[in-house]
Amino acid sequence: MKVLVPIKRVVDYNVKVRVKADQSGVDLANVKMAMNPFCEIAVEEAVRLKEKGVVTEIVAVTVGPKASQEQLRTAMALGADRSILVETDEQTQPLGVAKALKALVDKEQPDLVILGKQAIDDDNNQTGQMLAALAGMSQGTFASVVEVADGKVKVTREIDGGLQTVELTLPAVVTTDLRLNEPRYASLPNIMKAKKKPLETLSPADIGVDLTPRVKTIKVEPPAERQAGIKVASVEELVDKLKNEAKVIS
């Protein structure tokens, strides 16, 4: 069976972003970029399914600027067989991306789409669910266990308060949570091999999709700074402060 793995190029998770002085956004000049961590988990899950013999082909896809090719090459170094870039310099938003992915689903006819539950830049947590709606597919979001058997996929989901297990008909969309797996690192030989794997570039027009943003960002500000307080010398002093100064315990 074929798996589609949509990924996103984002600011590396170790970078502490700064808001631009003109409040137009965060400063991305000369900032290290990487594959979104939840997308790495998605690629890893697809690769593991291939290693188990469940999956025969993995297609990594992304919607974004030309430089997103780097992240597609990374996905191929990790085990994706080929990749597709829908190239745009437009600010991508979940609904537009989901429409582009729907067009790729129509083209590729995967049995399973595995993608990250959220990108760590916009923190939206929407794209997988939107794709599932547009493609009329079932969805297993925030997955911590994925088992494919008998034409169905069983997904254990991280929910508030615990875990929920659902069974989905195929084709299905699965979004990954942190505990699904621990992604591997790409080996040097595999990085070299990935350079020769096919990478197809399409324009939004090629797939008939309009990526115009629906939500306009008016301004971006730094959050209210929290002032560091005081150091207490002992547990006794701490309890005293909490009782008599902060009055948060009695």
């Binding site: 502490k16 972003v17 916009d122 923190d123 301004k219 971006v220 500000e221 730094p222």
Partner: peptide, 12 residues
């Protein structure tokens, strides 16, 4: 956005 390191004002 960005794990709360920036606050966006957005209009739909």
């Amino acid at each position: 956005i960005y794990a709360g390191n920036a606050i966006a004002t957005v209009q739909s």
